[in-house]
Amino acid sequence: MNTIIDYIANNQLMIYLVILMIFVGIELIEKVPSVLHTPLMSGANAIHGVVIIGAIIIMGEAENMYATILGFIAVVLGTLNVVGGFVVTDRMLEMFKKKKK
C-alpha cells in the first residue's frame, strides 16, 4: 500500500496530467458532427500508435534473442498501426474536399 502512495506522491505531475488529459479528450470530441465519426475514430486509432515509442525502446535495448524477436515484431506491428492508421484516415478525408456545385 505504502509503495502505491509513494508512487503517487513521486509522480504527482503525471497523475495531474492524466486527469487533465481525460477532460481534454472529452472536450475535443463533444459536438462533432456524426459525418466525421469514422475519420475521427480512425485518426485517434493512428494516434494511439504512439505505443511504437515503447516498441522502439524495447527493441533498442534488446540484449537477448527473446527481446530481439519480440521487439522486432512489436516495431512492425506498431508501425502498421501508425502508418496504416494515418494513411487510411487521409484517404477517407480526401473525399471530403469541397466541390463546386
Binding site: V18, G25, L28, I29, V50
Partner: peptide
C-alpha cells in the same frame, strides 16, 4: 508523449 497520446485517445475514444 506515450502517456499523453494514450490517455487522449483513451478518453476521446470512450466519449466517441
Amino acid at each position: 508523449v506515450m502517456l499523453f497520446g494514450g490517455i487522449l485517445v483513451g478518453s476521446a475514444g470512450t466519449l466517441l
